[in-house]
Simulated scan of single mutants.
Amino acid sequence: MHTEASLTADLRRLGVTKAMTLLVHASLRSVGLVQGGSRTLLSALREAVGPDGTLVVPTFTTGNSLTSPAYLRSTRGLTRHQLLSYRENMEPFSPASTPSDGMGRLAEEVRVTPAAVRSGHPQTSFAALGPLAARITSGHALDCLLGERSPLGRLYEEEAYVLLLGVGFEVCSAFHLSECRQPGQVRRRYDCRVMTEDGPRWTAFLDVDHDDSDFGDLGRWLEASVPAGRGPLDRGRIGAADSRLFPLRWAVDTASRWFAAGRGAEADRA
């Protein structure tokens, strides 16, 4: 059984250091049996980065949308009247209370920690703990899901690291910042339900039409571009979880070449 001490030791062997700013995507199940579950994993992460470090997790609420897979599954086959009723009874987003959707138990553990700060985006919020938490999560613009005016932009500025803990590049949200930086990005309308002082309201905005369907291919290309043992990407195990640690700025800048070449085109030439 994994303990806080053993997980902290694993994190340090991988390269997590004191005062690091760390964006974490995690699968607790992949870690194996942990004494104390997600709370212990969070304690290990906080111990590894120390009091001067900052932990950040995605706390997305992707179901809060009229176009998400979750919404489409739930409304398939409804009559017009049923659809209108469903929409008006959807839970509105509140940063203080709305659970994340499909982000894993660690993300929820961070979100409900009393000292955590959460950005206010109704679809792509992030939660953070540490001295930079307020700076990283503040000013998350409604029409900037995952771009420069989102926490990803602040993480880039702070030279944060990404920890993929038991998950693959398919869920690496940092790649979306590279995606947003490409010229001529297709934009589309997003609709979401939010809680206001006057009660639940629908709001709409235009932003990049994000696509993560090929992030696995991007990650494999990124990893192949790094000489074994001589690049900025470190790989090891946290508990039983195959994990990767790398600088967010390096990943974003390098991935931008892949996007600029026509997404998979450069990978095909490699």
Rank of each mutant, 00 (worst) to 15 (best):
S43C: 05
S43N: 15
S43G: 14
A44H: 14
L45V: 12
L45G: 12
R46H: 07
R46P: 01
R46T: 10
E47M: 10
E47W: 03
A48G: 10
A48Q: 09
V49L: 13
V49H: 08
V49A: 11
V49P: 10
G50E: 06
G50V: 02
G50N: 13
P51W: 01
P51T: 07
P51M: 02
D52R: 12
D52A: 15
G53A: 09
G53E: 14
G53F: 10
G53Q: 08
T54I: 05
T54M: 03
T54L: 05
T54E: 04
L55S: 09
L55C: 09
L55K: 09
V57T: 15
V57S: 07
V57K: 07
P58F: 09
P58T: 11
P58M: 13
P58I: 09
T59D: 11
F60V: 09
T61Y: 04
T61L: 08
T61E: 06
T62W: 05
T62V: 10
T62K: 08
T62R: 13
T62Q: 04
G63C: 03
N64D: 05
S65A: 09
S65Y: 09
T67C: 00
T67G: 01
T67S: 14
T67F: 02
S68K: 01
P69M: 02
Y71V: 00
L72S: 04
L72I: 04
R73T: 06
R73L: 12
R73E: 07
S74P: 02
S74H: 10
S74F: 00
T75A: 04
T75E: 00
T75N: 07
G77M: 08
G77I: 03
G77F: 06
G77T: 08
L78C: 04
L78Q: 05
T79V: 03
T79M: 00
T79C: 02
T79Q: 10
T79A: 04
T79D: 10
